[in-house]
Design a protein around this nucleic acid. Structure first.
Lengths: 180, 180
DNA sequence: GTCCACATGTAACTGGTTACATGATTGG
DNA sequence: CCAATCATGTAACCAGTTACATGTGGAC
């Protein structure tokens, strides 16, 4: 049950319409919690009936018409409650690791090309994160909010760094193996 | 569509019954692709009707009776095909990072305790992986299969190392922040 | 004979994905 | 007026989760 809280966070940062939220979920928040517009509209409907958000007044609600939402006090309270609630870390689930394990049984044919492709994708993502870091978190900025958001960004940077290193290593290992 | 291929891999490593598979998905393969017994039984049924696996002969199929499966040639071919097929890396999705971001808006109350708890959990997992490394991958072992499986294990070790470092850092940062 | 562990399964639900539908606004 | 784009939505589906049901065989 994280999507509603992702949306509450986004709306508290800035009241938005469904499509604006969708765009923000394509960058920013979407870097660690992605969502499609269908999910977002569905969830906005639920959040509204539960009294956590409301449409901004002076906006007529009609199909094809922009409809912006803002968070109500109950929504902020719910988000604070959720943030403070203990949650289990979800176990790792990664297709590439599974494929490596399968390759140990049925052979590595075709794997290396995709490892290289993934390496490139992760390098691109890493570069994007580092650009954001340069742009949004220059050495001076130091409000508590900035520190927390920087912390999140650094997790992204470190994770992409891990993947680029591991994939590089994996490609090297694969090169030394007999092909089968 | 990865669970069937996880099961095919497990069955190729060793023909098993549903419950035996469930136990192996609690360790080993489950470290990067977990599954419950309900998922496994459902998937075994599908794999059988598709002709990828069959019940070992000399086992009567009855409720409450053990029923072991082995992979048929078509199943092995399907696994090889899947292993060689390019797949998109799935974007990061992490609740803790989302909570940090939410905390930047609604305050950090209650967060630190759970960060510490997660740190401990990741430390335990890291220790478990390192124990497996000592046990199953001593310096000498070097068959191609071992190398691939070791590669997978190292991804687990490096990921847990990342989390323990990042969480330690995050707890430190949080300690410096005003509480709100 | 009863209880418990082993073993296999069914049903209902939830969250996320894919495909499609519909209306409003704007530029040519 | 037509196409493209903005914007909101519906429907069907699929994988994973939770709760529950049922049968077997051995220990006591």
């Amino acid at each position: 049950m994280s999507l509603p809280h992702a949306i509450l966070t986004a709306l508290l940062e800035k009241p938005s319409s469904g499509l604006e939220l969708t765009r923000r979920f394509d960058r920013s928040i979407g870097y660690f919690w992605s969502a499609t517009h269908q999910q977002i509209y569905r969830e906005l409907g639920r959040l509204e009936t539960e009294g956590y958000i409301r449409t901004l007044p002076a906006e007529q609600p009609a199909r094809g018409q922009k409809k912006s939402y803002e968070v109500l006090p109950a929504g902020r309270a719910e988000l604070a409650r959720w943030t403070a609630t203990a949650q289990e870390p979800k176990p790792l689930r990664d297709v590439m690791l599974l494929r490596l394990r399968a390759a140990a049984v049925v052979g590595t044919a075709g794997l290396e090309a995709d490892l290289r492709r993934h390496l490139e994708l992760h390098q691109v993502q890493l570069a994007e994160y580092e650009e954001i870091q340069r742009r949004d978190f220059p050495p001076g900025k130091d409000t508590p909010e900035d520190r927390l958001r920087h912390l999140v960004l650094r997790a992204g940077i470190d994770l992409e760094t891990f993947w680029t290193r591991w994939l590089t290593h994996a490609i090297g290992e694969l090169g030394e193996l007999p092909d089968r």
